[in-house]
Lab assay of single mutants.
Amino acid sequence: KLPPGWEKRMSRSSGRVYYFNHITNASQWERPSGNSSSG
Rank of each mutant, 00 (worst) to 15 (best):
K1I: 10
K1W: 13
K1M: 12
L2W: 02
L2R: 01
L2F: 03
L2P: 15
L2V: 04
P3Y: 02
P3M: 03
P3E: 04
P3S: 03
P4R: 06
P4N: 08
P4W: 10
P4G: 05
P4H: 09
G5N: 07
G5W: 05
G5A: 04
G5S: 03
G5L: 02
G5D: 05
W6I: 01
W6N: 00
W6G: 00
W6M: 00
W6Q: 01
E7N: 04
E7H: 09
E7S: 07
K8N: 01
K8T: 09
K8S: 07
K8E: 12
K8R: 12
K8I: 13
R9M: 05
R9S: 02
M10R: 15
M10V: 15
S11R: 04
S11G: 06
S11I: 14
S11W: 08
R12C: 15
R12E: 15
R12L: 15
R12V: 15
S13F: 12
S13D: 13
S13E: 13
S13R: 14
S13G: 13
S14M: 06
S14Q: 08
S14T: 14
G15N: 08
G15V: 03
R16L: 07
R16T: 06
V17C: 07
V17Q: 05
V17W: 11
Y18W: 06
Y18H: 02
Y18P: 00
Y18G: 00
Y18C: 05
Y19R: 00
Y19A: 00
Y19I: 00
Y19T: 00
F20W: 08
F20K: 03
F20Q: 01
F20Y: 14
F20S: 01
N21S: 04
H22Y: 14
H22F: 13
H22G: 05
H22Q: 09
H22V: 15
I23V: 10
I23T: 07
T24Q: 03
T24W: 04
T24M: 05
T24R: 03
N25M: 14
N25D: 03
A26S: 10
A26V: 15
S27L: 14
S27H: 10
S27R: 14
Q28L: 03
Q28G: 01
Q28T: 06
W29Q: 04
W29F: 08
W29H: 05
E30G: 06
E30A: 08
E30D: 09
E30H: 09
R31D: 08
R31A: 09
R31W: 12
P32E: 01
P32R: 00
P32D: 00
P32S: 00
P32Y: 01
S33I: 12
S33V: 14
S33H: 10
S33P: 08
G34P: 11
G34I: 13
G34D: 13
G34E: 13
G34S: 12
N35Y: 09
N35S: 13
N35M: 10
S36K: 08
S36D: 12
S36C: 13
S36N: 10
S36M: 11
S36Q: 11
S37A: 14
S37Q: 13
S37L: 11
S37R: 04
S37K: 06
S38G: 10
S38R: 04
S38F: 10
G39R: 05
G39N: 11
G39D: 12
